[in-house]
């Protein structure tokens, strides 16, 4: 764990915000939608690490985030129950909360949370800290379980990248990604409350845009543009 403290937190030349604003060859028709970039993921959008002013991150939060990575690796390498208990203690109540807000009864959410955490154990070797933060990874496991259990649907997943996983995740890449995700979390927390609530509803409440529109009494177009605004604001605060 020592290295996480010593790594060059906030050294922009190393791990500066790799906000690439991914360029997409577009754009023929105005309705063409090219997704804009918030984070640069390893080997996906670009390799160029831009120099720009990195905001100071809460070092304690970063240490916590890197600690999760170490804990998942301990589960993977040593079937470390103490490390698992740490992850469980932090994430299980949050997974349960997510599932209940998605419409699961407390009993179902409890059962489902235990399954999600057991899946984490089983899939620990598939976790790649250069591609996802532990929070992101657990979210995707919980989301897939939710679709399976609550919506009773199959979940088609994209196929794997042709070049496959790299042998040993690069520590600097992992650090950069974890840092970006921490920043994203901070940006989300500091959004104006109404904007944050809209994004939360879209993820948590299992509400479609039209359902949010019905609930809030706002027209669908307004909801869509407000969500768009909230995302733009997130992107802006990532710069």
């Amino acid at each position: 764990m020592d290295h996480t403290k010593k790594t060059r937190l906030g050294d922009p030349t190393q791990y500066g915000p790799r906000n690439t604003g991914m360029k997409v060859e577009t754009n023929v028709s105005p309705k063409t939608d090219a997704p804009a970039g918030l984070l640069a993921y390893n080997g996906l959008s670009t390799k160029d690490v831009r120099k720009s002013g990195a905001r100071k991150l809460d070092a304690e939060q970063m240490t916590k985030r890197m600690a999760w990575v170490v804990q998942v690796n301990a589960v993977r390498d040593h079937k470390d129950k103490a490390a698992f208990a740490e992850i469980f203690g932090y994430f299980a109540p949050r997974v349960k909360s997510f599932l209940m807000k998605s419409g699961a009864s407390p009993d179902l959410a409890e059962e489902c949370t235990q399954e999600v955490m057991a899946t984490l154990w089983n899939k620990a070797h598939m976790f790649d800290p250069t591609k996802a933060s532990v929070s992101t990874w657990i979210f995707t496991i919980a989301r897939n379980r939710k679709i399976d259990l609550l919506r009773k649907q199959r979940r088609p997943e994209p196929e794997d990248l042709p070049w496959g996983p790299e042998a040993e995740p690069d520590q600097a890449d992992a650090m950069g990604l974890q840092q970006e995700t921490e920043k994203l979390g901070e940006a989300l927390a500091t959004l104006p409350p109404e904007q944050r609530k809209l994004i939360e509803k879209a993820y948590f409440g299992e509400l479609s845009h039209s359902e949010i529109a019905a609930e809030t009494g706002l027209p669908l177009g307004t909801i869509k543009s407000r969500i768009r605004l909230a995302l733009e604001r997130l992107r802006h605060s990532m710069k």
């Binding site: 109540p93 949050r94 349960k96 949370t113 989300l188 948590f204």
Partner: peptide
């Protein structure tokens, strides 16, 4: 990643 952070930001529910 946004989903993960939304999940982290929710009020924890006792297991």
């Amino acid at each position: 990643a946004i989903g993960g952070e939304v999940m982290l930001g929710g009020d924890p529910v006792e297991v």
